[in-house]
């Protein structure tokens, strides 16, 4: 299995498409940041990592889409040219091939996510430098030591509070970032399952552009509501769950109390839910691949 994974990575790193996708991510990032700058009246040149991390969450859908398209392309190509025939006879079970795909696919999702974070950070760093602003880890006011020394006790207290908010935001955003990676892996596992089932990349392309999951989830949600009158089905679904997650850190900037309503139930719950999805989809993919011919 170790060797199969190695070979799988070798193929990934040899594919031009693997590198083309992050360029797409970068382009998306630049365009959307420039566009939003056009709209904002005041430009704040100062940048901090905590905010960048939470802003990166806005781009995670596109990360998953890119990873999904790339993986569908990679798997579909191998099925089409039949290279898998050379390998499948030399593994102890065909599920090993499927598991290796899941592992390398997850790695691709994680890599793309971190690419996005790094791009965003570098981009904002350049932005700060060009506009004469400062770049820091936490919001700039909180690190201004000269001013802190002259502060009144009340001001210091509120500063402490904002620090707490900043660090909770960091914690939240990190969890949310992780949840998005897990969400991406869940989507990859789902793609793999359908891929093993239908042996065709077509559905994968449709699925990976997120049209069907949302559509399907919407349908399931409505159906469940019709039958059980249970309104919160959406919270147990991948895309909807993640979408809610994306807006969480924004709410964080409001106040800490609001944050506590969301945390840890929402993020913890979503992460557990995503892990369940990953497990179910992977097991289904393995089950199918063991029974189907190459």
């Amino acid at each position: 299995m170790k060797n199969i994974i190695k070979a799988e990575f070798h193929k990934i790193f040899h594919s031009i498409f693997f590198y083309a996708m992050p360029l797409g991510l970068l382009a998306t990032l630049i365009i959307s940041v420039l566009a939003s700058n056009e709209h904002s009246a005041t430009r704040i040149p100062n940048q901090n990592f905590i905010q960048i991390l939470s802003e990166t969450l806005d781009f995670m859908v596109i990360v998953i889409v890119c990873a999904g398209i790339f993986l569908t392309y990679l798997w579909g190509k191998e099925r089409k040219n039949g290279y898998i025939k050379n390998i499948a006879g030399n593994v102890k079970g065909r599920h090993i091939l499927t598991l290796s795909k899941l592992i390398t696919g997850s790695a691709v999702v994680a890599m793309y996510s971190f690419f996005m974070l790094i791009f965003n950070t570098l981009f904002k760093l350049c932005y700060a430098l060009i506009n004469g602003g400062k770049f820091s880890f936490i919001p700039i006011g909180l690190t201004d030591t000269d001013r802190i020394a002259q502060m009144s006790p009340e001001a210091l207290k509120s500063l402490e509070e904002s620090k707490e908010v900043a660090y909770s935001t960091l914690r939240m955003s990190s969890f949310a970032f992780l949840a998005w990676i897990l969400g991406g892996i869940a989507v990859a596992a789902m793609l793999l399952m359908f891929f093993e089932l239908f042996r065709s990349p077509v559905l994968g392309y449709i699925l990976s552009i997120q049209l069907l999951p949302m559509l399907a989830e919407g349908l399931i949600e409505q159906a469940v509501y019709l039958v059980t009158k249970f309104e919160k089905t959406g919270e147990y679904m991948i895309v909807k769950g993640l979408m809610k997650m994306k807006t969480l850190p924004d709410a964080m900037y409001g106040n800490a109390a609001e944050m506590n309503e969301f945390y840890p139930n929402s993020i913890g719950g979503t992460i557990i839910m995503l892990c369940v999805y990953i497990t179910v989809f992977s097991l289904a993919a393995v089950f199918i691949s063991k029974r189907k011919d190459v």
């Binding site: 060797n3 199969i4 190695k6 070979a7 070798h10 193929k11 040899h14 594919s15 031009i16 190509k77 191998e78 040219n81 039949g82 290279y83 898998i84 025939k85 050379n86 390998i87 006879g89 030399n90």
Partner: peptide
């Protein structure tokens, strides 16, 4: 065991050499 079943399954965008190397890594 080694096999060649029906038409050869080869990676189009790789060189002949690379096709063999990838199988070697797998094994």
């Amino acid at each position: 065991r080694g096999l060649l079943i029906e038409d050869p399954g080869v990676l189009e965008n790789e060189t002949g050499y690379e096709n063999l190397v990838i199988k070697e890594i797998s094994l």
